[in-house]
């Protein structure tokens, strides 16, 4: 089983927690016109998936960084628009 890595991504614009599922179950928290997505990411491909969702919603990206490493990965792909 691969290890997940904790990431924190900050974007401009407020989103509420209903968006959690949309961003691969990352925790969505917003404040003062900014939103922070935080949580475990399976691998780099999953991270880039989330970044392109951010791009596709037109949300300006402020920062993305690794917060703390190593947690077990429960392979879970959600809500991908794959048609």
């Amino acid at each position: 089983m691969s290890k997940k890595i904790q990431y924190q991504i900050r974007v401009k614009g407020q989103l509420d927690e209903r968006w959690t599922e949309w961003f691969g179950d990352m925790k969505v928290k917003s404040e003062g016109g900014y939103t922070t997505l935080s949580g475990p990411v399976c691998d780099q491909a999953a991270l880039h998936g989330i970044l392109s969702r951010i791009r596709d919603l037109g949300l300006p990206l402020i920062s993305a960084h690794q917060s703390e490493p190593e947690e077990e990965c429960r392979q879970k792909k959600k809500g991908a628009r794959e048609t």
């Binding site: 614009g13 509420d16 939103t35 919603l57």
Partner: peptide, 8 residues
């Protein structure tokens, strides 16, 4: 007056 993401 709302700070939510415009599209949302």
């Amino acid at each position: 007056g709302d700070e939510r993401h415009i599209a949302d």
